[in-house]
Write a protein that binds this DNA or RNA. Structure first.
Lengths: 342, 342
DNA sequence: GCCAATCATGGTAGCGCTACCATTTGTCTG
DNA sequence: CAGACAAATGGTAGCGCTACCATGATTGGC
């Protein structure tokens, strides 16, 4: 006439089993596991022994329901294969690896609609924190984030009006700095080549344009863009287009390093001398930029640090001490290399 | 004296609120949301109206607890920035984007210990399925996977002894094919250059060795490896080392495309003619291989398809019709290009 | 037209855990 | 040494949902 073993749970030991074996109350087991400091050493030892013997593992779903909070960080990025976001995500992972928090990544595919859908799903599990890429959320997404009831960090960019917290840098300044460098090196007919013109790319383009206009050199025919996702081969093609449109081109600021590498390869193939005939600047400064021949000037961004910093801010907010500085600008660095050294 | 509004839940409407408003039982609401076919159209409409009006969103934690199953796919990969895994993960995401399943990625950092820890965490939320990279799980990890109580798919490789299901290809055959191609092209002093020698890299090396021994050309001094993570710059350095060790080198099979690109750049920098003096073969066939100048021969692997296929198999198993073919070999293709065309 | 089978719906009883509050014990103050 | 206070522990009552079983309504076979 023994109590029937839980029919659904698959027979896994529960906190009650541990409590019985250790001769304590269930709540004390719960505490011993989550806040060891609040339980006497004696009981802690007893409980640990019972846990080990039974092979008890807490049921995270039950915990989440009872505490109305899942130990999950929701992360929303527009792409998984784009090295830039992969680095941010790596930073997030590394910063959370010793914490109890799990990570759920959502891939928005650069779509506001998809972002809203994912926020709805993420929200309905009451995450511990949300990290989202970009600052151009749709009004709906913004509302969901404001009502999420957890810390929110917008990453990659900075702007004047954070939902909660922000870590990033100014893409406009990055684009301007890159272009000004080409101008200072003496290039004049400087093109902009960009794929997948997301809001960040748009702002880099705006920075390029500002620099060119300030120099009195802007010409819309210098700009070559496409909504197609970025790749090295696309860089090659776009460069060809740009050159066909404007044969006197003597420099290019590339939206990112993949494009820049494609441009470089096409130059070599077409026997165009870099940096003598054409100067090239990339964006993000992937490892290969410094290895390529010639090496490529690029704007180094602190992607990994954006991830670690975002987590640090979120953890602080969860712990109750929300950082006083809600907007963190990590800046960028221009890495001057052979591709613009003439 | 009204019933106090749930003190923990944050005032979100619950299924009971919807049921009351729609004038039906809670369980009927639950069914209308999960198995609409089992509820009459009339009630379905009424319920939908109540859901919309209240803005009801199911609490996923409560659902997971009650049904002893979270709608989560756990995915374990050794690296997030390695393009190869990023592509697999992208395939997984795309295949699950229209399903209710969320995805949790664990980053094992190529560590068996970390893999066990993550499996423990993942397992304690009763995931719907688990996808893990590789076939060399520790005994502990294997046990956890066998007892996970959900479909398990091992990806990237195939082997004789699946835990449950497998999708991948033979890295040994890939390494052998690449090396045989170099041999057929007339190269003789063919080196192997590899970073981060994980089990898959080891098997590619074994394939290289098998081909070289079959030709009577194997020499341990031809092999240059390091446990350091792979990168383009590392490829350059390792190639320098290899050349210092064996100046008569006339070909290299690179563990992956990053290394191959680094080798190519170093050749250009050192004015070594590719393919005349040195032949280069990469592995994975990233987009840039076909764009580089000269273009680089590589072994194309079907990474995205590995992800989509793994999900398809897992979903079938969840639905109750486990695929009859438990091991799927997606093969690979040698892409012959300029870097070995002499 | 009767009984079995099916369908649509609902009530009850948890899932395994933690928030909240109560209780007990030990410790300190004046 | 009384009274106040903190520390350690436990009991109770859910968290919001779904599995299980029961019920009544409908259908169908012969």
């Amino acid at each position: 006439m023994s109590k029937p073993r839980s029919r659904r749970g698959g027979g896994r030991p529960t906190i009650a089993d541990v409590a019985r074996k250790a001769g304590v109350g269930a709540i004390t087991v719960s505490r011993a596991l989550r806040e060891p400091g609040r339980v006497s050493q004696d009981l802690r030892r007893q409980i640990q022994a019972a846990v080990d013997e039974l092979g008890y593992v807490p049921d995270l779903n039950a915990r989440a329901l009872a505490s109305a909070r899942a130990e999950v960080f929701g992360v929303l990025v527009p792409s998984l294969t784009n090295n830039v976001f992969a680095e941010v995500v790596r930073g997030i992972y590394d910063s959370l690896s010793d914490s109890p928090f799990r990570i759920q990544i959502g891939n928005t595919h650069y779509s506001g609609l998809e972002e809203e859908r994912l926020l709805q799903v993420f929200g309905s599990q009451r995450p511990a924190a949300l990290i989202v890429a970009g600052i151009d959320q749709t009004p709906g997404a913004r509302r969901l984030l404001e009502n999420a009831g957890c810390p929110v960090v917008q990453v990659m960019e900075t702007g004047p009006d954070p939902i909660d917290m922000m870590v990033g840098f100014s893409h406009l300044d990055g684009g301007r700095t890159a272009t000004e460098h080409l101008l200072q090196a003496g290039y004049r007919k400087i093109g902009f080549i960009g794929a997948r013109m997301d809001p960040r790319s748009q702002r880099r383009l705006a920075g390029y344009r500002a620099a060119m206009e300030a120099a009195g050199l802007f010409d819309p025919r210098l700009v070559t863009t496409t909504p197609v996702p970025s790749s090295v081969s696309l860089g090659r093609e776009l460069f060809r287009d740009a050159l066909a449109k404007m044969p006197t081109l003597d420099g290019v600021f590339c939206n990112n390093d993949d494009i820049a590498l494609g441009v470089l390869f096409e130059c070599r193939r077409a026997s165009i001398d870099v940096p003598k005939q054409i100067g090239i600047v990339g964006f993000n400064d992937l490892d290969m930029m410094q290895v390529s021949f010639p090496s490529i000037t690029s704007v180094r961004t602190h992607r990994y640090e954006i991830g670690t910093r975002a987590v640090a801010m979120a953890l602080a907010a969860i712990a109750g001490n929300r950082p006083q500085q809600r907007i963190v600008d990590l800046g960028f660095e221009l890495m001057r290399r052979e591709s613009t050294a003439r």
